[in-house]
Structures are given as structure tokens and as C-alpha cells.
Design a protein around this nucleic acid. Sequence first.
DNA 1: TTGTCAAAAGATCAAAAGGTCTTGAAATAG
DNA 2: CTATTTCAAGACCTTTTGATCTTTTGACAA
Lengths: 141, 141
Amino acid sequence: MIFSTTTEYAIRGISELEIKSNQQPILLDDLIKGTDLPREFMAKVMQKLSKAGLLQSAKGRGGGFKLARPAYEIRLIDVVIAIEGEGRMGGCVLGMSRCNDAMPCAQHDLYKPIRQRLVDYMQTTTVADLAASLRQKRVRG
Amino acid sequence: MIFSTTTEYAIRGISELEIKSNQQPILLDDLIKGTDLPREFMAKVMQKLSKAGLLQSAKGRGGGFKLARPAYEIRLIDVVIAIEGEGRMGGCVLGMSRCNDAMPCAQHDLYKPIRQRLVDYMQTTTVADLAASLRQKRVRG
DNA sequence: TTGTCAAAAGATCAAAAGGTCTTGAAATAG
DNA sequence: CTATTTCAAGACCTTTTGATCTTTTGACAA
């Protein structure tokens, strides 16, 4: 509803990583085990998160992915920006590139509170929160 | 940021219509006059709004588009649903089709308040509000 | 050093979204 | 009835997004 599917994958992936990891690197194959995540595409997504500095990756034996810092220090907004770039959050709330000062979109002001609320949420929610929520969901069904 | 560009066009289009109309049908050419909206694509969007019952359309001389009911009786959510369908609002908040009870997405519960806020906004904001906002923006610059 | 493992990177492919163009059909004026 | 106006509808094109496949690179173990 709000994010692209690629971003959803990233959120899901980093949450799964936090759940399955015990400070040790997790293999892509293990990460997607038990999920319906598409392996090859997921590889790209994880690469992006690595390049953005949210994950550390290692090749070869004992390799895999792990969080670059504690889960509670990675905010949802960091994940979103890693995938979609800064642009989407700034500028026009409706994302209209055609929208500018000379020809503003109808929503410019109206939307501010809504958007701010979303941004707040993304800034205060961490990967630790997401993982906890996902774990709980699995237990309770 | 939140809606697809097609939906943005719909919001913009119906707002322009309300601004330019004096109870009389407006031609597509007049609707887009002074805007950067793509005419042909806009025709499709307006057609969708007509089929959804938000607009009335008439062919031939004296034809064009007009609101099917007063602007204050057309909610933003009606416009969004007309373009994107019901599905997007219901179901998973993140829009994941892969998300279900057996394999819920990480956000299912976390997002509820945010989503509810958005839905509230879309239910209480009408085309009259949007048009007023747009008009004001034009005057004040 | 050699072999194997696993991520990185790039090519490629498919589907969806966004946008254009052409033809058809309805309404009205003359 | 015919010509013109204007929306409707469908074919078609382009770009972006989502997804896969293959090759390369780096790390470790023996």
C-alpha cells in the first residue's frame, strides 16, 4: 500500500535476518528458507542493503549476511531510503515531479500532517521492532 | 509518495474540474489548459472516473465532463478506489499478496494505526477541499 | 596452490505502469 | 441526412519494476 514490493522485500529480508541470526552470518539460502521470497531477486536486495551500509556481507565459507549494527539502531526509514533513495521522502508529498512552486499539486499542504506521521513512524520503528513483531506473529499465528 | 501517478492525475483532474466548472460540462482540452497533464492519458483517467460514477460525460457539442454530484460529496477515497480498486485499501497494509494468515508480513499490526490515519484522511477529505486548497495555492503562489 | 563455497555484478527477460495514436460511436447543429 | 464535435475504446509503444540466469570475484580450507 505504501512501499514498493522491492522495499517490502528489503523490510522482510532484514527482519528475517535479525530473527535468524545469532550474531553470525546467515546464508541467503537459509534466509529465504521457509519463506516465499524469490532467491535471486532477494540477492540483489540484500546487496543494496549491504552497499547502503546496513548489512555486512562475506563471501566463501562462513560467509553470508549480517546486520552492520544492532537491530535497534537500524531504523525503518534507513531501509526505505537504502532501496528507494532520499528523493522519495523529500519534495512533493505525492511524488509528483511536475509539482513545483509555480504549479503546486493540490495536496502540498493538506498532506503534510499525514506524511509527517509516516516519517515519524519510519524514524522511530527499528529493525528490532519489526523482527519482534514478525516473531510474535509466527508464534501466535 | 503514497499514490500512483495515475491516481495523482485523477485527483488533480477532478480538482481542476471542480475549479473550472460552473455547473457546466468542461472539455478535456479546457481541463488540461494551463497544466502539464498529458491529454490522451488524462482522457483515460477521466473515463475511469466516469465509469465509477464520479463524473458525468457527454459527447458532441456542449459535451464534456462534470461532477456527478456536488464536490463536497465526493471523497478522496472514492477517487482512489475508482482508480486503484478496493483491493488496495483492504487486505495487507503493505499490499503484499503473499501475505496471509499463515505467513503474515512483518507490518500487519504495526501499520494499522498509520493506515487507519490515512484512511480517515481520505474519508474526510472531499473534492471541494482539494479544489479549495489548489485554488488558494494558485492565488497565493 | 587448488578446489569449493557464497556473494557481487552484469546481462537478460517478463510484466506492469505510464503514455500515445487511431478509429469508432454518440450527440447536436445546420 | 450530413458534418462536426467530443468522448469511448482499443491497439500500440515506452519506461520502469520485478525477477532470473550466468559469470566473476573473493574467502577460506585442505
